[in-house]
Nucleic acid binder design. Sequence first.
DNA 1: CATGAATGAGCCTTCATTCAT
DNA 2: AATGAATGAAGGCTCATTCAT
Lengths: 211, 211, 211, 211
Amino acid sequence: MINNKVKGNDKYHRILEAAVKVFAEQGFYQSTISQIAREAGVADGTIYLYFKNKDDILVQFFNYKTKQVFDSFREEVDKADNSFDKLRNLIRRHLEEFQNDRNMAVLYQAETHQNSRLVEEQIKEMSKLYLDIVSEIVERGQDEGRVRKDLYVGLVKRFILGGVDEVINTWLHSEGKYDLVSMADPLVDLFIRGIGNTGNIKNENSEKNNL
Amino acid sequence: MINNKVKGNDKYHRILEAAVKVFAEQGFYQSTISQIAREAGVADGTIYLYFKNKDDILVQFFNYKTKQVFDSFREEVDKADNSFDKLRNLIRRHLEEFQNDRNMAVLYQAETHQNSRLVEEQIKEMSKLYLDIVSEIVERGQDEGRVRKDLYVGLVKRFILGGVDEVINTWLHSEGKYDLVSMADPLVDLFIRGIGNTGNIKNENSEKNNL
Amino acid sequence: MINNKVKGNDKYHRILEAAVKVFAEQGFYQSTISQIAREAGVADGTIYLYFKNKDDILVQFFNYKTKQVFDSFREEVDKADNSFDKLRNLIRRHLEEFQNDRNMAVLYQAETHQNSRLVEEQIKEMSKLYLDIVSEIVERGQDEGRVRKDLYVGLVKRFILGGVDEVINTWLHSEGKYDLVSMADPLVDLFIRGIGNTGNIKNENSEKNNL
Amino acid sequence: MINNKVKGNDKYHRILEAAVKVFAEQGFYQSTISQIAREAGVADGTIYLYFKNKDDILVQFFNYKTKQVFDSFREEVDKADNSFDKLRNLIRRHLEEFQNDRNMAVLYQAETHQNSRLVEEQIKEMSKLYLDIVSEIVERGQDEGRVRKDLYVGLVKRFILGGVDEVINTWLHSEGKYDLVSMADPLVDLFIRGIGNTGNIKNENSEKNNL
DNA sequence: CATGAATGAGCCTTCATTCAT
DNA sequence: AATGAATGAAGGCTCATTCAT
């Protein structure tokens, strides 16, 4: 009854953006419908024409944003033709998207690290999507001979997602003054080579080409 | 004004534990003072004899827990006498502590990834303490020739903390059925060697034994 | 200002019927303009072209229905030529009308037994009309020698209206599965003879003729 | 969790009385918690220490009042030793109770004649209790030979309850200036003798004896 | 005439905090 | 120190009514 043609509506997105901004600034539970309404320039009641309730705003945001972001990830991954470049592209795009939509970044960080999550489903799905992409890349890398074969992939993907997340989190809490995307290449380097000093460093070249 | 001799009190810790349990289960804002009081077996009003307000419970928890955990970290790091073993010990102990106190783990994850943090100060301090330990280890590793010298240490420490955090987060959301500590060695292996296949895999036999 | 030629309108009556249905099902205050509009197949705003406000729907319903029903009552009473038959006809028609328009019956029962009535005027008028008819019948009965002269007519009419109302109310709350009209004759018998056993029961015949 | 020892509490009854007063004056849905709180001289929130929600106030009122009133009815019925006297006692006490607690009378009238009743259960139970008492009296009357045997008792009891209800309802809407209880005897007379003029008025004596 | 999106006043309910006992 | 009844501010949500189209 609610989402008729509404999604294409200007007001729908205005409210969504306003809500995300307010949520990002104050946290979901500290935010009030009135604040969101004011930010969106509508009346309180108007929000309920587009959203079932307060929770629903968050749910719909994740629904809408997830698709958008993942299409972007997938596109970027497909552009490259070897595993390392795919990984590099994924992570660069990841950082780009989160840098470009800071509010989403904040919400995402908060929600994914909550125990009682309002958007459990979406988070689970997003997380799986992401980890699947990484798994795919890692496995392809193993086929290519670029990635070690003695790896527990279930751990590797978390290791990578964790590194990216933490870099984003740090950026968010540093008032986001520096360029997040510039972290991509050094980070990928760490994922690939680790911190250990092997002595013979030939595999560095691939990265230089991508800068 | 409140914390005179009170901290040694039995009731103080009962409330603290109760609060952490409730917060971990439901989230800070979904938890009520009444629930905490019931869980602790005291009256609502009693809580205000030991804590200034609801926020203060969280603050005091982090104060009290931080020291305890970091002493434990420090002790473990000091036990080892080379950088890699120090890193391994740190991470193993980190996972142990979080596995042993699941409620703390939940709270820690939630609070560190929030934008408007009630315990900003403590979180910042904890984070700094942790990152300092890692920096110290990395730098020592560089001196020892075990760690690459071409690294941006500010990134490396986030890369490591991120990996550990994500592994913990995954464990928390998987209902915590498997043994978190067993992740320590493979994870350290990833930090040290990365995922890249250098061809000559002489270093680090130790990890294979742990898989 | 509104009711110009509007009353002859199809939409006016559609809304009225829809409203009465919704009111009867859920009660006046539990019903919303939206529900009525949906039931009537019009837009919410359209209702305000025909009715001043929500209350006005109820008021206009009683206005319109009262006349209709009372004309019917009067007609039926006039058909008979002695007091007992007039009473019997009145009550039978009363039960018929309420059985045929269950929604009206529900609304009537609810509104007449409310303290703060939205349709005070109409209810008072209806009530008076009804009681006047009964008074008239009773007085005529006294003239005919069929009705006791030692009666307080103000009480008698209530006694009769009350009996009828209660029978209707019971029917309404019993899901209305049985035939309400069949209650008319036994009820009239009770009004006329009471429950007392006089020993010599000659006057029963009148009822038999009417079955 | 709520009704601990609370029912014996002063405040519990103060709120109940206040609520009933407000409900009686304005109707349930027009009444606000704030009005009730003000009338009771407590804070809004206090009401929720004693009642689950607004509806619950009504429910608890009927629970509490029903028992009280019916004990009173039963007691009065048992005092008399023949059916007619029992009926007279019941009705007199009925009118007395409702005259003495006008607010209850208003609520009772409103709720019993509603379609969607908040206190369906209680109303059904009260109604049944009342009708059972009347049935019992009528059947006893038949055994005694005072009451006609050719009666449909299911109708008789409604006929009686309806008459009483209507007399009460009229009294309520007449601002309750006259003495309701004085209606008892004439009403019982009507129930027993009806309005019909049997010609041989010997049976009138029975009433005189009972006055 | 008709629509239905928009409004915002108003109400129920929760819950952190206080304080008399 | 401990209690828990009482408070009342605050917020989510509903819905009668309006008005631009």
